[in-house]
């Protein structure tokens, strides 16, 4: 079966985020960018399913600037067979992305869409669910285990109280949580091979979708800093402070 893996180019996981002085957003100039960590897990899961013989073709897709080709090349180095970039320099938001992905789903007709549960920039956690709604597919969000069976997939989900397993009819959308797998690193030969794999570039207009943002960001601020605390020298002092100064025990 064919799997579609949407991925996002985001600020690298290890970069310390700085808010711009004019409060218009986060400073991304000269900052290291990478594939969103949850998307890496999605690519890895698709690759593992291909290695098991369940999946026959993996198509990676990204919606974003030209530079997102780097992340698509990474996905192909990790095992995706080909990729599609829907190129736009405009601000994109989950509903618009879901609409673009729906158009891709209609063209590609995958039996499963595996994507990260959230991107670590906007922390929205929406795109997979929205895509599922727009395409009328069932969804298995926050997956920690994925088992494909005949015509269906069983997804174990990380929920607040523990784990929940659901069974979804295919085609289905699965969003990945951290513990689903540990992504591999791309090997040098595979990075070289990925350069020759096909990468199609489309525009939102080609897909005929309206990706106009519905939400405007009025301002972005640095959160209130916690004021520096004190070091205590002993457990006794700690207990005394918690009882008499902080009055929390």
């Amino acid at each position: 079966m064919k799997v579609l893996v949407p991925i996002k180019r985001v600020i690298d996981y290890n970069v310390k985020v700085r808010v711009k002085a004019d409060n218009s957003g986060v400073d991304l100039a000269n900052v290291k960018m990478a594939m969103n960590p949850f998307c890496e897990i999605a690519v890895e899961e698709a690759v593992r399913l291909k290695e098991k013989g369940v999946v026959t073709e993996i198509v990676a897709v990204s919606i974003g600037p030209k530079a997102a080709q780097e992340q698509l090349r990474t996905a192909m180095a990790l095992g995706a067979d080909r990729s599609i970039l829907v190129e736009t320099d405009e601000e994109i938001q989950p509903l618009g992305i879901a609409k673009a992905l729906k158009a891709i789903v209609e063209e590609e007709k995958p039996e499963m869409v595996i994507l990260g549960k959230q991107a670590i920039d906007d922390d929205n956690n929406q795109t997979g669910q929205m895509l599922a709604a727009l395409t009328g597919m069932p969804q298995g969000t926050f997956a920690s285990e994925v088992n494909v069976e005949e015509g269906k997939v069983k997804v174990t989900r990380e929920i607040d109280g523990g784990l929940q397993t659901v069974e979804l009819k295919l085609p289905a959308v699965v969003t990945t949580d951290l513990r689903l797998n540990e992504p591999r690193y791309a090997s040098l030969p595979n990075i070289m091979k990925a350069k020759k794999k096909p990468l199609d570039v489309k525009t939102p207009a080609d897909l005929g979708v309206d990706m106009t943002p519905r939400v405007t960001i009025e301002k972005v601020e640095t959160p209130a800093e916690r004021k520096a605390g004190v070091m205590v020298g002993s457990v006794d002092e700690l207990v005394e402070k918690l009882k008499n100064e902080a009055k929390v025990i």
Binding site: V17, V19, K219, V220, T222, P223
Partner: peptide, 8 residues
């Protein structure tokens, strides 16, 4: 946003 490192 950004894991609470910024507030939008």
């Amino acid at each position: 946003i950004y894991a609470g490192n910024a507030i939008a």
